[in-house]
Design a protein around this nucleic acid. Structure first.
Lengths: 267, 267
DNA sequence: CAGTGGTCTAGACCACTGG
DNA sequence: CAGTGGTCTAGACCACTGC
C-alpha cells in the first residue's frame, strides 16, 4: 500500500501560528489545532468548495482529511455554527448556511410589525426604483474598501408591508463581483436579495454592522415613503461583510416606525 | 469514615427531564446531562450562592459535587459563559459576570459617539431628575409581569456626554426587590446603575430586549435634552431580565443622534 | 510550584434521519 | 439498518496565573 495520503495542507501543529505579522506581536500567539482547522474550513467555504445549502463532509471524513480527532473537528465546527456560517442537523449532516432557507430568511432585517409575528404580514412588496452604475464617492469607497471613483452599482428600492411603503433603501455594491446585476434580475427574483447574491454572484453575506439614527424625512424620501416633510424616520446604515471580513455592501435605509419597530436583543 | 457525601441534588440521569409539564409534550424531551448541570449552576447563581465578581468552584470541584466528568461540567460552563453569565479566565478560575468590571461597563448601552471610541468622552454625567413611588399602569405592569396598580419605582434621569444632554430615560422597577432605592443613593453611586443593582439589591441584569423607533421630541423631553420641538429622537424601550427570564426593569429612553449613533452588530 | 482553565485524543454509547 | 451529529467519559498534556 502506498502511504503518505495527506490530502490537506502541510502539517498542523498546535502552537504554530502562521498568521502573525513581523514584529506585530511579541508573544508567538499560541494557536490551538481546532482554530487552524477552523481556518482551513473557512478557506474552503470562501473558495466555494461547498456552496450555500450544501452539506459539508461528515465530521469523521474531515477528521481523516485533516488527520486530527473527531473532537477537534467538532470544536472547529461548533464555532463556525455559533457564527452562523454552518448549520448542524442531527442525523443529517452539517450544511453551509444560506439566506435562502425559510427559517432564516431576512435574518438581517430587524424591523418587525408592532403586533403579530415577524412574517405575519405576508411577503413584502419590493419595488426597484433604480439600478445604475456610478462612481464611488469618498465615503462610499471607504466603506467598501475601494478607491474613490471606482465603479459601483447603486440600487434604490422601496419595501412595502400590507400595501404601505415602509422602507426606502439605497444600496451600493462593488461593480466587479456583481457584474451583470440589473434592475430586471432584481425585480424578477423571488426571495431575499442576499439569496440572489449567493446563487447568482457567489457572494454570501455573513455579518453586518449597523448605525442607527433618528432623522427627519427630506424631499425625495418623504415622497417615496408617503410621509409628510420632517416626519422622523429611523436611519439605518449597514455595512455587510462576506467571509474574512471583506465588506461587500453599503446600505442606507430609512424605516417608517409608526407601525413597525426595530427589534434588538442584548445578551 | 462516614460516606455518602453527595452534597448536591438527587441522581442525574441523561434523558430524565424534570421540566416537562403534564401533557404539554408528547415526546419525553431528552435532556442531556450537561443541560441539567447547567440548570443546577443557574439555580446557585439565582440563589446567590456565588455573588457577581466572585469565583465559582473549579471544574474539578463541580465535577465531584455533581458526580459527573470534568468534560460535562465544562460544556455546561461553556454555555453559561457564551450567555455572558460566567466569565472564564485561564489560570485563575471562572467568575460570576458583573456589570461592575471596567471591561464590560455599559454593556447594554449601544449609543456610541460618531467619532472616537465608546469611552473616549470620559464618564457620562448623570443627573437624577426624580425618583418616586407610583402605581403601575396596565402597560407598565404587563412589561414587568406585575398587576395593574402594583407599586413601582419610577426614575427619570438625564445622561450627558461632554456636557451635552444626550439621553433622557424613564425607568420603572418593581418596588419589592428595590425597596429602599432613593434618588440620593442613585446620585451618590459611582458606576453603572446595573452595578448598583447587583451590590445593593442582589439583582443582576442578564439579558434585555429593545424596541427602537424614531419619534419627534415633545414638550418636556425637548426641554431636558435641549432640542427644539419636533426634533427626531431615537426612542428605545427596553425590558431587562434577571436569571430565568424574570423581567425586572422597564426603561424608556430618548437618545439624541446628532453626535452619537446606536451601534448594532448582526451575526 | 501547585492549581486553574484549555486542548486533544480515543472510545463507547445515544438520538435522530433516511432509505 | 447504516450514517450522521450529540453526549459522556477518562486520561494526558499544555498554557496561564500567582504564590
Amino acid at each position: 500500500m502506498s502511504s503518505i495520503p495527506t490530502p490537506s495542507a502541510g502539517n498542523l501543529v498546535p502552537g504554530s501560528d502562521s498568521g502573525t505579522l513581523a514584529g506585530a506581536q511579541v508573544t508567538p500567539a499560541f494557536s490551538p489545532l481546532y482554530q487552524q482547522i477552523k481556518g482551513l474550513i473557512l478557506n474552503s467555504l470562501r473558495l466555494g468548495e461547498w456552496k450555500p445549502g450544501e452539506a459539508i463532509p461528515s465530521e469523521m471524513e474531515l477528521a481523516a482529511r485533516f488527520r486530527v480527532s473527531q473532537g477537534t473537528v467538532r470544536k472547529a465546527i461548533d464555532e463556525l455554527a455559533a457564527e452562523n456560517l454552518l448549520v448542524r442537523q442531527q442525523g443529517k449532516g452539517t450544511f453551509v448556511a444560506t439566506h435562502a432557507t425559510k427559517q432564516v430568511q431576512f435574518r438581517f432585517l430587524k424591523l418587525v410589525p408592532d403586533s403579530g409575528t415577524p412574517g405575519s404580514e405576508g411577503p413584502a412588496q419590493r419595488d426597484i426604483i433604480e439600478c445604475r452604475r456610478t462612481r464611488a464617492s469618498a465615503d462610499i469607497a471607504r466603506a467598501l474598501a475601494l478607491r474613490t471613483g471606482d465603479t459601483v452599482l447603486q440600487v434604490r428600492r422601496v419595501l412595502s408591508f400590507a400595501g404601505s411603503p415602509t422602507i426606502l433603501e439605497d444600496i451600493w455594491l462593488p461593480a466587479t463581483p456583481f457584474k451583470g446585476l440589473t434592475a430586471e434580475r432584481l425585480a424578477n427574483y423571488q426571495g431575499p436579495m442576499y439569496a440572489l447574491f449567493e446563487t447568482e454572484f457567489n457572494v454570501r453575506m455573513v455579518r453586518a454592522e449597523e448605525k442607527l439614527r433618528a432623522e427627519p424625512a427630506v424631499e425625495g424620501r418623504e415622497l417615496l415613503l408617503k410621509v409628510s416633510h420632517g416626519t422622523p424616520l429611523l436611519s439605518v446604515e449597514r455595512i455587510a461583510y462576506t467571509y474574512k471580513d471583506v465588506p461587500m455592501e453599503l446600505r442606507r435605509g430609512y424605516y417608517r416606525t409608526d407601525t413597525h419597530h426595530y427589534h434588538n436583543t442584548l445578551g
